[in-house]
């Protein structure tokens, strides 16, 4: 192997930086969607590599469902302070009040569907024309179909049957007023790539990604954290388990996995050995139907 060979993580990193710089070069008002999860933390790390010593040419935007893990929020605020970039927090709670939206009912009432309203509002308010997101194509089969520059109409809708051809590394970000582009720099990364990269780059993560003791209940084979957002039934048994989170979404729709991984090496070993996919193991919201993600994307979701 010659010395001018870029290894696979280097190639993925460079591709992601290239996509971010295309967003910066093609759009007037881009933003980076930040959830506090490992994928968007990786995006921030890549943005530092793409734009430093300059400032980011976009703010970070967090759609705050009000159901976040407190550890993820603390981490978010600390990260923003360290890097000195602008953070916009848009609260689903306020959208619900302003628009008289109806919340889901039931034990695991999730705001997953409602956050699309908040997202579309914040896009309109700040006139965002491009939103960088941390979605990966290996996560889910509708995502596997989406372009890197994915055009959304003024209702935020994705039209999977009419996607623009996307050739070579040439990205067409031209849009009509009111439309926006969702740009996915880490489309080609897998879950394991993310973890290997986090390890290589020594990227810090919220503590809940590592094994810790937590009070949980068992729901259809999944471990759900006890929190103020979930109403316990009389039949629920609160267990104390050693767990970590494989993904970080809302407390109401993200399940924990039992784990002994206290560091990145431990996590990588467990991920290689796992027999269940990331979303399958940890997301309560994807099981609704075969086309759950496709439908949400058509409705403006990421």
């Amino acid at each position: 192997m010659n010395k001018y060979h870029l290894d696979y993580l280097g190639q993925l990193e460079s591709e992601a930086i290239h996509i971010m710089r295309e967003v910066a070069g093609q759009f007037e008002h881009p933003a980076l969607l930040f959830s506090g999860g490992k994928d968007s933390i990786t995006l921030v790390h890549l943005a530092l590599k793409a734009f430093r010593p300059g400032k980011f040419p976009f703010p970070l935007v967090h759609i705050d469902t009000g159901h976040n893990f407190p550890e993820a929020l603390d981490f978010r605020d600390q990260l923003v302070e360290t890097i000195g970039e602008k953070l916009i927090v848009a609260k689903v709670e306020e959208t619900i009040k302003q628009k008289n939206l109806t919340e889901q009912k039931g034990k695991f009432a999730s705001r997953n569907a409602l956050q699309t309203f908040t997202l579309l509002d914040v896009i309109e308010e700040y006139k965002f024309d491009a939103l960088i997101g941390g979605a990966r194509r290996d996560e889910e089969k509708a995502r596997a179909k989406e372009r890197i520059f994915s055009v959304r109409d003024e209702f935020g809708q994705w039209n999977p049957k009419l996607q623009r051809p996307e050739l070579w590394n040439i990205y067409n970000g031209k849009i009509h007023k009111g439309e926006n582009v969702r740009a996915f720099p880490i489309s080609n990364w897998t879950e394991l790539d993310i973890w290997n990269y986090i390890k290589r780059e020594n990227i810090e993560l919220p503590s809940i990604y590592f094994a810790h003791e937590r009070e949980v209940i068992e729901h259809e084979g999944q471990l759900v954290s006890v929190s103020a957002h979930i109403k316990l039934d009389s039949t629920d048994v609160v267990l104390k388990r050693k767990v970590r989170y494989r993904t970080v979404g809302d407390m109401t729709c993200t399940a924990a996995v039992e784990s002994n991984a206290y560091d990145l090496d431990g996590i990588i070993t467990e991920i290689i050995a796992t027999k269940t996919s990331e979303r399958g193991e940890t997301r309560i919201d994807d099981k609704v139907s075969e086309a759950a993600m496709e439908d949400r994307k058509k409705g403006g979701y990421f």
């Binding site: 089969k141 509708a142 596997a144 179909k145 999977p160 996607q163 075969e290 496709e294």
Partner: peptide, 16 residues
């Protein structure tokens, strides 16, 4: 990956 593809048993667009 798309509902229309599963319904028709064909591939319409590229999946990665």
């Amino acid at each position: 990956g798309l509902r229309a593809e599963r319904e028709q048993g064909i591939t319409i667009d590229v999946a990665y």
